[in-house]
Design a protein around this nucleic acid. Sequence first.
DNA 1: ACCACGATCGTCT
DNA 2: GACGATCGTGGTA
Length: 224
Amino acid sequence: MKSMPSNFSAGELLPLSFYAGSALEAAPRLLGQTLVRETEEGAIRCRIVETESYGGIEDKGSHAYGGRRTARTEIMFGEGGAAYIYLIYGMYHCLNVVTGPRDDPQAVLIRAVEPLTQHDEALMRLHRGSRARRPADLSGGPGKLCRALLIDKSLNGALLHSSTSPLRLEAGAPPAGPAGDSAIIAAPRINIAYAAEYADMPWRFYYRDNPYVSVVDKERGIPY
DNA sequence: ACCACGATCGTCT
DNA sequence: GACGATCGTGGTA
C-alpha cells in the first residue's frame, strides 16, 4: 500500500478533517507532514519521520487503556486535532497528535523529526546544547525532539489545525532523494513490553533510510 | 497518605 | 549493554 503525506498543498495548514480517522491510519499519514513550532526566536519547521499509533481503550500500550480517563489523559478523549503532551521519567516530554471523534481516545506519538532548513537546524541545536553529534542525537526520539522544539506541558491541548497556535501541522512532503528515502517501514513500538499481546503490533512507522529515526529495525520491520 | 513505575536519555563500562 | 536521574501519575489503602 502506498502512503503519501497527503493530498493537500505543501505549506497549508492541515484541516480538522485530517484528524478525524483512527490513530492507526493517521500514524503513517503523518509521516512527511510539517510540524511548526512558534518560538520567541521565530518559527521552527521540521518533517515528521517517525510515529507510533496508540489507539483505543483496548490497546494495552495506551495511557487510555481500559477507558482510563484522568486529568492527564483527558485531552485524548477530546476531538482529534489537539496535542497531547505528557512528562515521562520525570524529565522528558512526549508529543502526541490526538485523532478520532470525541470520547474515543486515540493518539499518535511523534518519535522523530528532521529540520527542514539549516535555520531550523540551528535553532534546534541551540536548544539541545552541544550534544547533537549525529542527526538522531538532535531530534531522533520523543524526548529529544521536545527539547529541540521547546515543547512542554504548557502546550498540552494546543490546536494543531489552528493558524494562531504555537504548535501546528502543515502539509509537507516526503524526503527528496533516492527512492529509498521515502520508503516506509512498519515495526513494533518502542519500550512497551508491558503491553502484552499489543507489544508486538507493528504500529510504529518510519522512513527506512532516514538518519533522524530513533531506532531502525533490522529484522522485525516490514515494508508498509 | 503511600508507593511503584514509566510511550526516555545520557553517561559509563 | 547497564544504570541512574527525577517526578507526575495512577493504583491501592
